[in-house]
Amino acid sequence: MFKRLMMVALLVIAPLSAATAADQTNPYKLMDEAAQKTFDRLKNEQPQIRANPDYLRTIVDQELLPYVQVKYAGALVLGQYYKSATPAQREAYFAAFREYLKQAYGQALAMYHGQTYQIAPEQPLGDKTIVPIRVTIIDPNGRPPVRLDFQWRKNSQTGNWQAYDMIAEGVSMITTKQNEWGTLLRTKGIDGLTAQLKSISQQKITLEEKK
């Protein structure tokens, strides 16, 4: 169930391209415009997507990853294993993690069937560096609404905000991946996880038929 919630949630996290980005210092504006741009692209490019579902990787690479804190999220997933990894191991892992996100997020976007969304009203940021933004996803086919909290983090150097995690039903996506990959990290280390991520990233994206 959580895996499905995570995939549905990713439908609204794909941010804007650099040329049309919203105010990078306001995570609420980023979330709002990102959702609108993403849904528009999914709707307008269905012919290309249906002809070649792996085209979704391109959308992810162009529109999402430049505005997601990939390395920060990847380091959180590694936890204690990050500090013990060599620079070469980290570089290989982050490259594999990025390719994994292209496949995983692309597969999530393949679930698009006309969903709509509501974003919580903007709250004062103050001096906060981590801000959760509640998004409610509404399914046109009558499924119950899904309420999610996207975690946005302020870059201490640039002042810009980027998304790095999502919490559904009190469970963090980062925590879920830590639990899912924990045994592999304990037995085969970061190299074993890197190899698995490379394998997963090679899987073809498949479209979910409308139910």
Rank of each mutant, 00 (worst) to 15 (best):
Q202I: 13
R4K: 05
F94W: 00
Q162V: 14
E122Y: 11
H113E: 09
V60P: 13
T158M: 12
I119V: 13
L78S: 02
K211Q: 15
A104D: 11
A85K: 05
Q103C: 12
R57I: 15
K71A: 07
I138T: 09
L56R: 01
A168V: 05
Q178D: 15
P124D: 06
Q203T: 12
Q107H: 02
A88M: 04
A34L: 13
G189F: 05
M166T: 09
F39C: 11
T187G: 09
K198L: 09
T38A: 05
T38K: 08
R143G: 07
T183S: 10
K29H: 01
T183E: 08
N44R: 06
G79S: 07
T176M: 07
N26V: 07
K211M: 14
N160A: 07
Q115M: 13
K154S: 09
G142D: 03
A51N: 07
Q24R: 06
V8E: 09
Q151A: 12
L42M: 15
T116N: 10
K204N: 03
K154H: 01
K3T: 11
L125D: 15
T187H: 09
Q46T: 13
G114M: 02
W181P: 10
A195K: 01
D61M: 14
P121W: 06
R147G: 03
M111A: 12
P145G: 12
P145M: 09
Q196K: 15
E208T: 13
L76E: 15
W152V: 12
E208V: 06
E208W: 09
R134V: 01
A75V: 07
A104R: 00
Y93M: 03
Q48T: 08
A75Y: 13
A21W: 05
A104F: 02
T58D: 11
R57F: 00
G114V: 12
Q151E: 15
A88I: 15
T158Y: 12
G189M: 11
V146R: 06
A195E: 02
I205L: 09
K210L: 13
R98M: 03
I49G: 06
Q157T: 08
A35D: 02
K83I: 03
R98P: 02
K211I: 00
A21I: 15
G182C: 04
V146F: 14
Q80G: 14
M1A: 04
L78N: 04
P132S: 11
Q196W: 00
P121H: 13
G182Y: 15
L207D: 04
T206N: 11
K71S: 04
A163E: 13
R57W: 06
S172E: 10
T206Q: 15
P87G: 08
Q151V: 13
I190V: 07
L78M: 05
Y117P: 04
Y72E: 10
L109Q: 11
T176N: 14
L65F: 04
A96C: 15
K128D: 09
L5W: 01
G114E: 02
L56G: 04
K204L: 15
Y164F: 06
L65I: 15
R147W: 08
T175Y: 13
R134T: 00
L185A: 12
L76Q: 08
D61S: 04
E209T: 05
I174F: 15
S201C: 07
Y82T: 00
R134N: 01
D139G: 12
D32H: 00
R90K: 00
L10R: 07
Q69S: 06
A104P: 06
L76N: 02
I138F: 10
T176G: 08
A73S: 08
Y93R: 06
K211G: 11
A51S: 02
V12P: 03
D139Q: 15
Q69R: 04
L10W: 09
G126E: 13
T158V: 15
N44I: 14
Q48V: 09
N26K: 11
I119Y: 07
T158S: 01
T38N: 06
Y28K: 04
Y112L: 13
A163M: 07
I205G: 10
S199R: 11
T206I: 01
K211C: 15
K3Y: 02
Q202A: 13
G159R: 09
E122W: 10
A95F: 00
A22W: 08
E99N: 00
L185W: 09
N52Y: 07
N160K: 03
M111C: 08
D61H: 01
K204D: 12
G74I: 14
A18L: 01
R41P: 07
R143T: 09
F150D: 14
F94A: 09
I138E: 04
E122N: 02
N141T: 07
M166W: 04
G106K: 04
L76H: 02
